[in-house]
Design a protein around this nucleic acid. Structure first.
Lengths: 340, 340
DNA sequence: GTTGGCACTCCGCGAATATGAGTGCCAAGT
DNA sequence: ACTTGGCACTCATATTCGCGGAGTGCCAAC
């Protein structure tokens, strides 16, 4: 049904259309690619491909453009991810090295990814719920003012300030700090709240209420899913490359970029770092973005991914290039997180 | 030269043009505003205003549109900043209250400002160099691994992790913590580095090198101007309202929004919170943005402003509304920062 | 200084026309 | 059975032309 030449034709159509942004005709195809056949033959193949729903023509007597289904087949056909050139690898390394903290890593990554793919890049901050507690610090800032700092395995820092009803003894603070740390260090954040529940019982009755308050704040900070929604965005200026059809394609995307919740849905489930997910057109879980595609993958310090990064662009995009860029950046970032 | 009626005419032209986005003619003016004169009279005034360079016509026999100079006069004519309605004030209060940390405050502010003005909003993070040190914490994370946390008066937290050549005694850490805090708490960050320079001399000779390293990290964290460049952006989707002329007006702006350095130049010098700065068209310090205007003001916990926030939009924008929104949000944010 | 009248200027818009890229199909060739 | 050249046909896009109308500038009258 689909012999190799038809696949070649489809691939050629996708490549040309991505490059020129214009419907591609049979003549142009045989000129630009050295398929060893005549335009007429290509036309027959095209008719077949259209029959199967892989390509379509915007109007009678125009060239063909790939459908979502066509892109899908094209992407599936890319069996392996094209490795980056040495120069590109070096560019990634130099660009990312020298980052001082997590924020810096995320921001550099998003800019890098945007630069490499010439598209809009999105990097999710490492999800709290999947990371573990590295350290908890309790600091008195004044008599009744207390600062709580939680540092996670991914370098992320959560902080909470709280006002106490009465001053606490330094000894109590020290004991609390020690007990908190021994209870939760190394534990995943998700279970940290449970592990401190009974903690106030170890304290003197007089301090118990205040300690309970602090433990409550800690549990809240650790359980706070709001911060899971944090993402960084870059390369918005690349949207101008969309060119045509401002209202239908760019406006919804700009709006989506503001809604971080929507973005996270776009990035999708956190997947293995070695697996690059591609969603094309209607496969994207957002009605307004039927003409955009998402290329994403997971990343994280260990083998286990703790967050997602990727790029968003028009369905008419360079899938091969985007996939390899996303893959490479995810690998490097994972590497950096593991070291830090 | 410019009697009150001519000013009224200019104001009317600006208002109509801002609303309709179309060149406004003499007839439309007298219809929509009850100036008590005939179109012919208005035409004479218009001729005078054009003579002076306040308005211009895109082509012969079209209506007039304001020039940058016209907008400037219009804005200067707005003697006082229009107070917000009670509903708007309440909206601001409810939107901003319940922010848990600095990050949250900034993000809520930028969204709020974008929502209120229907434009692109920018909020600069409180500048480190202008704020003071509230607390320094030194934490050992493992034998040779040390975490340094600096909390500023604006709620911002800087953290640095460093690897030590040898383990330090807990007593030394405690002493270092105490000395650091007593040396710099309450001091502006700009001078903090100087104040700790001689600090290692107070320690035993054996520890001095390690202490010096830590102090160095501290000085670096405090002096790091890189973080002064941090800004939050919101309301990018409102760019679609620019409508016409994508490449010339939107593309450069999108690019500028990616370049935080450029943005900070746009926002300009940190000004008093009670003073709203308006830059119109060519007054904006960026060649590519000749058709955009910036409305900005300073904010900060005390009387002294520590950072800037504002909105960016087409020269054809609602200056009165934007100015009052920017003013009000700056006031509220300052208030929140002072409390926290 | 204000107003109504009037000729004039262009922009924008729609209809009419030309252009041409690209197709589908058919008959002939391999 | 597939491939190929030929050819008529289609339709989107570009171009031209003509017109209507909004808006102006000027002038004479008030």
């Amino acid at each position: 049904m689909l012999d190799t030449r038809k696949l070649d034709v489809l691939r050629a159509i996708v490549e040309d259309y991505v490059q020129t942004r214009e419907p591609v005709g049979s003549k142009a195809l045989v000129d630009r690619h050295h398929l060893g056949v005549s335009p007429a033959t290509v036309r027959n193949d095209m008719a077949a491909l259209e029959e199967e729903g892989f390509i379509t023509q915007p109007h009678t007597s125009a060239g063909r453009i790939p459908t979502d289904k066509g892109y899908r087949l094209f992407v599936d056909q890319l069996t392996r991810i094209k490795p980056l050139s040495g120069a590109e690898k070096r560019a990634i390394a130099t660009f990312l090295e020298g980052a001082v903290d997590l924020d810096d890593v995320v921001h550099r990554s998003v800019r890098l990814l945007a630069q490499l793919t010439q598209q809009v890049a999105i990097v999710q901050y490492p999800t709290l719920s999947r990371s573990t507690v590295r350290h908890v610090e309790v600091v008195t800032m004044s008599n009744t003012r207390l600062l709580l700092v939680v540092i996670t395995s991914t370098g992320r820092v959560e902080q909470r300030v709280t006002e106490l009803p009465e001053a606490l003894d330094d000894d109590v603070i020290s004991e609390l700090r020690a007990r908190l740390n021994s209870a939760v260090v190394g534990q995943p954040l998700a279970s940290a709240a449970n592990r401190v529940a009974g903690l106030p019982d170890h304290f003197h009755l007089v301090d118990r209420a205040v300690v309970a308050q602090i433990v409550g704040i800690f549990a809240e900070a650790v359980a706070d899913n709001r911060t899971d929604e944090k993402v960084a965005i870059g390369g918005t200026a690349n949207l101008v490359r969309f060119g045509d059809d401002f209202d239908r394609s760019i406006k919804p995307l700009l709006e989506a970029l503001e809604e971080h919740v929507v973005l996270l849905k776009l990035l999708g489930e956190v997947s293995s770092p070695s697996l690059v997910t591609v969603r094309i057109g209607h496969e994207v879980p957002h009605d307004q973005l039927a003409t955009t595609s998402v290329v994403a993958t997971g990343y994280g310090p260990g083998e286990q991914a703790v967050a997602t990064l990727g790029v968003v662009g028009p369905t008419r995009m360079d899938y091969a290039g985007s996939m390899s860029a996303v893959h490479a950046v995810a690998r490097y970032v994972s590497h950096i997180l593991a070291d830090a």
